[in-house]
């Protein structure tokens, strides 16, 4: 029972992470983690995509704007992409987005790319544990205050 309570407590931490999982490798990997009964923090909201290469930079920016404290993209290992070269695209975009995030003052550690195959259930659980811990150390996204400010501005505009 004690361990269940721990899981519950972890649920209540306010860290929110959006994870994009590629259908062919990482989603199957996450499935394996579940089937193997590996525990990992429940702060992660997973989104299944057909290929990590379909994750547009827009999706990442939108996730941060909508309140994500961290964004994780996982895909097939290089050379294993179901669509042959989709994950090269992911990697190229990842570099640009991470550099840009750092430049505008959002910690680059909040955005991570990992290659996880269908057989790596343990790696998936470990990645999520590690990423949640790292983002947890950084705390809530600095854009959280901006969201509040935007809401109050909006409320102000509605009054007129």
């Amino acid at each position: 029972m004690a361990s269940d309570e721990n899981v519950l407590l972890q649920d209540l931490t306010p860290i929110r992470i959006v994870a994009f999982l590629c259908n062919w490798c990482s989603y199957a990997g996450a499935d394996l983690a579940g089937v193997s009964r590996l525990s990992y923090p429940a702060n992660v909201v997973t989104i299944r995509v057909m290929c990590s290469g379909t994750v547009s930079p827009y999706h990442v920016l939108k996730a941060f704007q909508s309140g994500a404290d961290g964004v994780l993209i996982t895909g097939c290992h290089i050379g294993d992409c179901h669509y042959l070269k989709g994950n090269y695209m992911t990697y190229k975009r990842f570099q640009v987005i991470q550099g840009l995030l750092q430049f505008v003052g959002i910690e680059p550690e909040r955005f991570r790319l990992e290659w996880i195959s269908a057989s790596e259930g343990e790696k998936f659980a470990e990645t999520v544990r590690d990423f949640t811990e790292e983002v947890g150390k950084l705390g809530e996204s600095p854009l959280a205050d901006e969201r509040e400010a935007a809401k109050s501005r909006e409320a102000l505009m509605r009054r007129f």
């Binding site: 930079p57 827009y58 920016l61 939108k62 941060f64 704007q65 640009v96 987005i97 840009l100 505008v104 854009l143 901006e146 935007a150 501005r153 909006e154 505009m157």
Partner: peptide
């Protein structure tokens, strides 16, 4: 795009609005 940038609000969704364009300029 209504899904990315809320319409009718000023300033537009920051910093997304400007970062979207910055990404497109890459």
């Amino acid at each position: 795009d209504e899904d990315l940038v809320e319409s009718g609000v000023l300033p537009p969704s920051i910093p997304t609005f400007h970062l979207l364009r910055a990404i497109d300029m890459a």
